[in-house]
Design a protein around this nucleic acid. Structure first.
Lengths: 157, 157
DNA sequence: ATTAAATGGTCAATTGAATTGACTATAATA
DNA sequence: TATTATAGTCAATTCAATTGACCATTTAAT
């Protein structure tokens, strides 16, 4: 029995490594494309405001952090030109956070990078197995969440 | 076509959700068993010192954080009774961090909880598919890492 | 052997992304 | 109208990480 590491890689570790590996590759590529000011956590926010924008509270629900933290993150992304705050058309208290052109450029870059990664995986384990993998993960996530995909992506934990 | 969410769940999101779901369930259960003082990040440290202990620098390599951060984390875990620092038998500079009895109790609890989760997944998608899933993840991780499993678990990212 | 460089570890101060708490303005409800 | 709830921001704090400085010991070079 060959052991490639002095410690076990159980299922959680495999999931964590797979995820971290993708994120790391994503941000290496983004850095090269001039998006060095984007951190992994920002991805969760972008995922929510893409494509139609979202209010702060919608982002809060999605990310599972406080509204103050979300507000600060929006400050940062606005200052760096990725998003803009618009007044909410229906609710005078609210604002909608939308992507700027630079924000859209980031989204397109990310999608392209993800596509490359997925293609490499498909070539590696087979397109069919990749579909199966996604389906299995989907099922497993739902099973711990009353049959639904969680409405929020908890950032890491 | 039914869309269960207003936004896409791509592969990275699925991996993240699956991992986060497990970690969340793990710590809910650990809390119930009286391990409320343990945070998810500690798991990476425990994984490395189990079963034979490890030096600080070995933990550093495993976790991908600074030695100062590791030292502080060991301080915390030592203060809470999970680990102990012993002098290193060969190297007068070094120390080995080993599990205390409480540390072992935690390890056992974690393994039991993971086993339950894996069994539920096996029941859900089939034991065969679960094996395949792990094998696929293993392969994908190696493919981005020169054919090796990463020597370190980067804590989240 | 002796010196020089590298390594393992800790102490101290700082950073930075999160938190809690307090507040304003608008909306929904009684 | 008066009251309560909601969306968002400002301010201060927390806490796990960081950088920087240092000591002790081991390894390498001379």
């Amino acid at each position: 029995m060959s052991k490639s590491s002095p410690y076990n890689h159980d299922l959680p570790a495999l999931l964590s490594l797979a995820f971290s590996g993708i994120i790391q590759e994503l941000h290496e590529q983004l850095d090269k494309l001039g998006f060095e000011d984007i951190r992994p956590a920002h991805g969760f926010l972008f995922q929510r405001i893409n494509p139609d924008g979202a209010t702060g509270m919608e982002i809060v629900e999605h990310m599972g952090i406080t509204k103050q933290a979300v507000s600060q993150m929006i400050d940062y992304l606005e200052k760096h030109g990725y998003v803009a705050r618009h007044p909410h058309p229906q609710d005078g208290r609210g604002k909608i956070v939308v992507l700027t052109e630079r924000g859209w450029a980031l989204i397109r870059a990310r999608e392209a990078i993800y596509a490359v990664i997925e293609q490499r995986w498909a070539a590696l384990i087979g397109a069919e197995r990749l579909v199966q993998l996604k389906s299995d993960l989907d099922q497993m996530i739902r099973s711990t969440n009353e049959g639904e995909l969680p409405p929020r992506l908890r950032p890491v934990w």
